[in-house]
Design a protein around this nucleic acid. Structure first.
Lengths: 187, 187
DNA sequence: AAAACCATGTAAATTGTTACATGATTGC
DNA sequence: GCAATCATGTAACAATTTACATGGTTTT
């Protein structure tokens, strides 16, 4: 049982999902490829944590829908009592920022402009996501899902993503403001 | 040449460092253990990216100090022209947040209280770090290092770390405010 | 018909962590 | 003496990514 395994159980604790769906939904919190998810789901099934049902579809290819078992829920409850390990962030841009002074400011500006664009797109997607969660849980303006609601966790995470995204945008804009604009070079 | 390799070159582009120092300094941006760093440095030396000199110390064990070569600088300059790949963040707390509703609010509060503490300690360390960088680069209040200064990159990254840390603290405090406080259970 | 998305899997390679190993030096 | 920090390395294991493989369905 590694972290990704618990992550899959965590998603399955609210609704049954296919491996493909799990792969898409876990991305924002714990990036993983389908080649990691499928064998892990098979292992969780062997361990009795989840059950699997083949669902035939007419409009799309058939799929295997996984559901969490009591044993899986128990594993989650146990897991929640141990402190979360420190978050791990790996950002190539940070490493590049460290040696920026070795290239033309224009080259550096380009790096941060691209990242700013990345965060602006992310913000856009997030706002839409939050709107859709609000609709599904039938919430009024500024109203929170209750702690018992399966959307409570999703809501606080979306809020974190939103706050982080805005901070990152602010930071990128500040960096672009402090990197000198290219002077006309020697004619 | 993987990202960690470029990261080491990036750090070496400002000053020569031992493998041990590199290991400590790269942690905030790209976590890596010494077991990954030492063999990689040996490879970079074989590739002619860095040179190594044995430095004898009387107060501490002897060490190998690595310096970047022209080939290493050229590799960095090339690397800076390609866009940085998307940052990767893996946070177990996010996965736990998703299935929180399956346990008592007190259990959840504990998770976020621990994380809040983690970020508060980090903020403390960051503030001291920023102060020391300001001293080394002899900066007045609110003054930035120039783009050419080797501290420019460090400064903008410290600023990012500071902004992110504050956002995370704010978020943790908000989460602790919205998780219901344990009601007296059935007597 | 080609591209895009849905869907599931395995194999190989790379990256990263933990454990094994060793040893100097300093402060308690 | 013992723990902590400094210092370097290798081996085994676990996690992750990339590539290989296949095939249905929908939209352009």
């Amino acid at each position: 049982m590694n972290t990704l395994a618990y992550g899959l159980l965590s998603l399955l604790s609210h609704s049954s999902l296919s491996g493909y769906d799990l792969m898409l939904r876990i991305q924002p919190f714990w990036p993983a490829k389908h080649s990691q998810i499928y064998p892990l789901l098979a292992r969780l099934e062997r361990n009795g944590m989840v059950s699997c049902e083949l669902v035939q579809q007419s409009d799309k290819p058939d799929k295997k829908v996984y559901s969490i078992n009591d044993k899986g829920i128990a594993a989650l409850q146990e897991w929640l009592t141990v402190p979360a390990s420190d978050p791990v962030m790996r950002d190539e841009l940070m490493l590049k920022a460290f040696c920026m002074s070795h290239v033309d400011p224009a080259v550096s500006r380009e790096l941060f402009a691209a990242r700013l664009e990345h965060y602006r797109n992310k913000l856009e997607r997030l706002c839409q996501k939050i709107k859709s969660v609000r609709q599904v849980d039938e919430l009024e303006e500024d109203q929170m899902p209750s702690y018992q609601s399966p959307y409570f966790g999703a809501y606080i995470m979306l809020n974190k993503a939103l706050m982080s995204c805005r901070t990152n945008i602010e930071w990128c804009e500040w960096v672009l403001a402090v990197i000198p604009v290219e002077e006309a070079s020697v004619e």
